[in-house]
Design a protein around this nucleic acid. Structure first.
Length: 629
RNA sequence: GGCGAGGUAGCUCAGCUGGUGAGAGCGGUGGAUUCAUAACCCACAGGUCGGCGGUUCAAAUCCGCCUCUCGCUACCA
């Protein structure tokens, strides 16, 4: 079988933040895949890297008063330094700021331009200075002329930019996805993209004028512009292979698997294939999409202060236990929860009690009953063969799991086989047979069990290379070179193994003083500024949900001097009926605003803490219209 | 509100194109055993398979409606 190849990529990680659990998971999954394909005899290539251009990077650099290049060098180095600590075997690490990359980006852009799929158009748009982006009318239909995020007035700017004819490839793309189930998986993401393709796609703006953004790759056909956002990033998967001339590209590109998290699905499932098609380059073979990690049931976020540092976890639990846990715990494609309790539970049940203990009992018995030398497998019984067949079944099942990245369920199957081996030993009771003098049979039983352990060691090696190397070493074996299920090497001296996976203890976290999750205090203002705000007590007279919204209530309030209507985003916290009669605090002199077509003259005040909101009101009854100061 | 994914034993979930009396792991209870990391092995869960209706000789598995949860999105002055 000549030239079986496999190429797997992580996304290039954006260097505006430190690496966390999510980055580690994606990369570990890729590493596991590449190691499995290695064992299956494929010629493999594994790429990761960093994405370093763009406005966000510019802004972060400016805010921290750093030179951009110096900053991206430092942040990229953090990622580069992380991977060896997680035993990641990437072959290359590409940075978008490298010349070998920008050269290819420009070549692809030029080719696409020459083919007529990039055109210039004047974009008369509404621009938000703070977002540094344009908004479509559709995006601002609630409040035309205002930024939906900052709610500041948008500037009308006329700007020329280059656009990619994404719409031209919509039908082709739908056909591509529909005709090949392996192209995009798991299924929920395939459905999502197909649903998205039911509506017409807009052409994609792919440039920014240099005067607004110089931190980017210049368009080859117009140096007054840099390419914006996606061309410069996605092309890394090709440029790292030395497109177009390097033989690596010919060799690996047809067998490309892109691994991503679900947040960049659209870019990889829609933009990227179309970019490739337009440049007359074959599309990648597979896109695989995984979910996000929560931490102890909560979304991982900087503001919650629960961002998981993978190195810290690897140090705490052991690198291989960490790798095993993330691969085993997250159902591929769904979100998973990272919790110390379940990590400890999985370690103790699956690794320590089942696998580790199996190694312990087998090596101990070889020591006691066979003078420490691995016995020969002779005259296998039906029970022996049935058990050994389980190993073959596992090996046969592996390619399917790799294709779909369902490592989690493959690991479950390996566990089952380990459990069967434990049961087999109990049923065969070699200790009893030894007492009965059946030493040959005892030898065979231990040989079978050893073969099972060695097989499991091979099959788990890509996930836990260090611990499985120890396991194999106990049988006098080196690192696996293939997955063939062969008889154990009789005569090898067996070393009674020290516990391969020690029991871990889960300690209920003591109630530390909760780290403050309060938002930072805004810049100081003068009293005169505060005095401009007219706060009043008001009584709610009427309340009803605003149709077709989840969060809005329309309220009629009594302000003493007048009644007025306000629209408030509190429907998730208060029912309309419980609002009526309640006294609240409102900003009475706020400029009116239309929400969902309803005018809101004022804003009510509520205390907010992440998921909850509580209305502010007077401690006792006050006449409607009373001032608050 | 739109799109997507789901609601199966206390918990986490398997159950593909409909058909032996509905499963696994964890936890819990009881038992057996001693080779082993107080590990392993065995037995025990009587769960309206979210609800209602339909198709069928037969539905957790197909269709319709409803309901709830989660994700993305809209919206939240």
């Amino acid at each position: 079988m000549p030239g079986k190849t496999y190429y797997v990529t992580t996304p290039i990680y954006y260097v505006n933040a430190d690496p966390h659990l999510g980055h580690a998971y994606t990369t570990i999954m890729c590493d596991i895949l590449r190691r499995y394909y290695d064992l299956l005899g494929y010629d493999t290539y594994f790429l990761t890297g960093t994405d370093e251009y763009g406005q966000n990077i510019m802004r972060v650099a400016q805010q921290s008063n750093r030179d951009v290049k110096e900053m991206v060098d430092a942040n990229s180095a953090k990622f580069r330094a992380l991977w060896p600590q997680l035993n990641i075997t990437n072959d290359d690490f590409i940075r978008t700021t490298e010349e070998r990359h920008s050269r290819v980006v420009q070549a692809i852009l030029q080719r696409t331009y020459d083919n007529g799929d990039i055109y210039m158009a004047e974009y008369g748009g509404n621009y938000c200075v703070r977002c540094e982006r344009f908004y479509t009318d559709k995006e601002t239909e609630q409040k035309p002329g205002f930024c939906p995020i900052h709610e500041t007035e948008l500037e009308h700017i006329k700007e020329k930019n280059y656009f990619f004819r994404l719409s031209k490839y919509q039908d082709w793309l739908r056909e591509r996805i529909e005709s090949d189930r392996q192209f995009l998986a798991p299924n929920q993401f395939r459905n999502e993209v197909l649903a998205l393709l039911r509506d017409p796609l807009d052409d994609l703006c792919i440039s920014r004028p240099v005067e607004r953004l110089h931190w980017g790759i210049p368009l080859p056909f117009d140096d007054k512009f840099v390419t914006y956002v996606w061309y410069d990033a996605l092309v890394n998967y090709m440029s790292a292979l030395g497109y177009p001339d390097d033989e690596k590209f010919q060799k690996y590109w047809p067998e490309t698997t892109h691994m991503i998290a679900k947040d960049i699905l659209r870019q990889h499932a829609v933009y990227w294939p179309c970019f490739l098609k337009a440049a007359e380059i074959p599309t990648f073979k597979r896109l695989r999409v995984h979910g996000w990690w929560t931490v102890e049931g909560k979304k991982m976020s900087k503001s919650l202060g629960n961002v998981i540092d993978p190195v810290e976890e690897a140090n705490k639990w052991g690198l291989d236990v960490f790798r095993y846990f993330v691969a085993r715990e997250m159902t591929f494609g769904s979100d998973g929860d990272y919790s110390a309790k379940s990590l400890v539970a999985r370690n103790n049940a699956e690794l320590a009690d089942d696998l580790g203990n199996l190694l312990s009992r087998v090596t101990a018995m070889v020591g006691k009953y066979c003078e420490g030398a691995l016995p020969a497998l002779s005259e296998p019984t039906d029970a022996d063969q049935t058990l050994l067949r389980g190993l073959n079944d596992l090996i046969d099942a592996l390619p399917g799991h790799l294709e779909n990245c369902t490592i989690h369920s493959f690991l479950a199957k390996v566990n089952q086989v380990v459990t069967l081996t434990n049961r087999y030993i109990t049923e065969q009771a070699p200790w009893a047979k030894f007492k009965a003098g059946e030493t040959d049979r005892v030898g065979t039983i231990l040989a079978v069990a050893s073969q099972m352990l060695i097989g499991a060691g091979h099959l788990l090696y890509p996930v836990m290379p260090e611990r499985m190397a120890e396991l194999l070493e106990a049988f006098g074996l080196g690192q696996p070179e293939s997955l063939e299920n062969t008889a154990p090497p009789a005569g090898n001296k067996i070393q009674p193994a020290k516990p391969l996976f020690p029991q871990l203890e889960y300690i209920e976290p003591t109630l530390e003083a909760p780290e403050s999750q309060a938002a930072p205090v805004k810049p100081e203002i003068a009293f005169e500024d505060f005095a401009k705000v007219d706060l009043r007590i008001a009584t709610v007279l009427e309340a009803e949900p605003v149709p077709k919204t989840d969060k809005l209530l329309r309220l009629t309030i009594d302000l003493g001097m007048e009644k007025r209507q306000i629209v408030a985003g509190i429907a998730q916290f208060y029912k309309a009926e419980e609002m009526i009669g309640r006294q609240i605090v409102v900003v009475a002199n706020l400029a009116p605003r239309k929400l969902r077509g309803l005018e809101s003259k004022g804003m009510l005040l509520a205390g907010r803490d992440g998921e909850t909101a509580i209305l502010l009101g007077p401690g006792g009854d006050l006449p409607a219209g009373s001032e608050v100061s």
